[in-house]
Design a protein around this nucleic acid. Structure first.
Lengths: 195, 195
DNA sequence: TAACTTTGTTAGTGAACGCTTACTTCAACT
DNA sequence: AGTTGAAGTAAGCGTTCACTAACAAAGTTA
């Protein structure tokens, strides 16, 4: 994975991610972030030109990691259902390890009116969508999946269901078993989908 | 529908809803809201004791309307699939008429760390969940729906899929056909579900 | 060694925030 | 007619926000 960021920038982005996870995006202020890092506020501006740039960097950083992870999984040539399961297992495990990123993703309501940030969140959603959609298409072509629903509708269902599992996990204060619940829902969905 | 609110309060809440829809929740400030209503900032405090109370009222107001609508639909005794279709058609049509409320619902990321507001959003989700879940249970008892998935998992799938349709509509700038897309996805889901 | 670059500091800036105080207006009731 | 209470106002409070200017230390380079 190419690295566009300096060590200090990564430190700052990770502190920001942690803070968002623990106290919400409203509590991500330059003052708080500087205190977390035991730096002055001005020091942060040596590494990012604005607060917005920190958020932008944070999302870019995660997308880089995500693309890497996804492309490895997609390159294997298995049963579409197995690839789908791997895709979500990998994603959900990343969320468990780094719950902060979920808080950022689910803050899209706030980003709605900030074009740059919205674009980043949309990019992440599209990344998942394109890969799921191509797997569903493959499954339908091979006659494995039912065709009473188009691939786009099925993709919407799969993504929506998984998002809902993540949202419930988030609302439970990360106490529910995300990977178990997610796997359970996905397996059921695939059973219904497979002819 | 009982009415806990004065006319002025409703005016204020509707102006707030409109502003959130048009410019995002970040742009909902007392100053802006007062300007929208052509009132002084202090005047708002004659009707609500805090800005938080305005948001709280707004959600309470919508939940009242929602409960009313849902209970009418649930009291009829039809095929569970027909009730489910009515439930969502009614909900989606409300969203189209009042798109602002969607912006508020999808701001739950912000409410995450405000207990009162989070409780309201959770109340709305539970309201849908309980009713969908009972319909799915009814359908399974009557042998209409497949039982390879528990009612909770199926409810998660239905709610998640519909939420995803709404999110896509939101991200499209409300240009896609919400009711058509939603109906399409729900019909497909029910077909897969019905034995 | 002298100049330059990087990374940090202190001490602010103006603007925006939610909210309050003190005062006014005016319709309704006694 | 006088009193009261609801609903409005202007002005400004204290606080927080993102961000900046001026300067300092320390390492690197010429």
């Amino acid at each position: 994975m190419e690295n566009r960021f300096t060590d200090r920038q990564i430190e700052i982005m990770e502190a920001a991610t942690l803070r968002i996870d623990q106290f919400g995006i409203q509590e991500l202020t330059i003052k708080n972030l500087a205190a977390d890092l035991k730096l002055s506020e001005a020091a942060l501006y040596r590494h990012f030109k604005s607060k917005n740039d920190i958020l932008l960097g944070l999302l870019t950083y995660f997308i880089l990691e995500m693309k890497d992870r996804i492309s490895t999984i997609m390159s294997s040539n298995q049963h579409p259902s197995d690839t789908l399961k791997q895709l979500f297992t990998s994603q959900l495990n990343t969320f468990v390890k780094k719950p902060a990123i979920v808080s950022v993703i689910f803050s899209e309501g706030i980003f709605q009116f900030n074009k740059e940030l919205l674009d980043k969140v949309s990019e992440m959603m599209e990344l998942m969508q394109i890969n799921i959609s191509s797997l569903v298409y493959k499954g339908q072509e091979q006659g494995i999946y039912a065709e009473l629903l188009g691939k786009d509708a099925i993709t919407t269902i799969i993504m929506g269901s998984m998002r809902m599992v993540v949202l419930k996990w988030k609302l439970s204060g990360n106490t529910s078993n995300l990977v178990k619940d997610g796997t359970n829902v996905l397996n059921g969905l695939l059973k219904m989908l497979e002819k």
